[in-house]
Amino acid sequence: MDIFLQQVINGLVQGSIYALVALGYTMVYGIIELVNFAHGEVVMVGALVSLSVIERLAARGYSGWTVIVIGLLLAVPACIALGLGIERVAYRPLRKAPRLAPLISAIGVSIALQQLAALIWGRNYLHYPDILPKTQYAIGGAVISEVQVVILIAAAVLMAGLWILVQRTRLGRAMRASAQNPAVAGLMGVDVNRIIATTFAVGSGLAAVAGALVGAYYNVGNHTMGFLLGLKAFTAAVLGGIGSLGGAMLGGLLLGVIENLGAGYMGKLTDGAVGSNYSDVFAFLMLVLVLVLRPSGLLGERGIEKV
């Protein structure tokens, strides 16, 4: 088996999930300059809501992708509502507050959602029912499963859709204008509050899909699953250049591949001393490295500072 190719495939699949989550970070950051710490938790809620739905349907004997789609149909609106609520309650009142305030509020939302999820779904890992086909396809010495193919396609379609929304529609133009300069966009008749809310809604919708896909892929979920996923997706966003949509996509895929290659070879290179237990450390070191060497990321513009 071709380990290298296999790790690249796994990396791309994982990376496309990172990318979907990273888009939420980068869009929100682009428009209100806030690291939305709660974004990872929105992904977690998406995963657990869809899981609850899937479990119930599976118990009645349904199976296959339709079940996942039905789960998504409930998770997406739930997460959008959640995202809008978070923005309205915890961030909007603090838009003019000193910088530390929204950050602290954001961390508060993140913890609150985790604990709420623990109260609702319990603290143990939940396992997804076995309803998906196990078909595998061989390509060039490696294998790719049907689940992986679906994840890749879904992510690609969503990203293309987002790209068209932002680049080609009136709404997208208003979003870009608000990200450039909210005050001026406001003067030009853009309802900036509405645009910010829309940004949260879109980001949360993507997070819901990412959550459901993560659940389907790894077959487990619990209330803490959003933390590391969020941290990694943020790393991906920074790697690509925070504020840049293309950057978030590129950064996500890149991080996924690097992480998988790292995990695949690290044990070998270090003679087992550093095992795949440390693959999470890897992403973090990457974050620090990018911040030190190229804080603007791969595709990001250097920030404009007014003096």
């Binding site: 309650v89 915890a90 009142p93 603090l94 507050a97 305030a101 929204p102 602290i104 509020s105 961390i107 508060g108 939302v109 993140s110 913890i111 609150a112 985790q114 604990q115 709420l116 623990a118 109260l119 603290r123």
Partner: peptide, 21 residues
């Protein structure tokens, strides 16, 4: 039903947001 440890952290988190606002 409601784990006190989770309930407590939830309360802290809500307090954090409320204090900021």
């Amino acid at each position: 039903y409601l784990d006190p440890a989770n309930l407590r952290m939830l309360l802290f988190a809500v307090a954090l947001i409320a204090v900021m606002i």
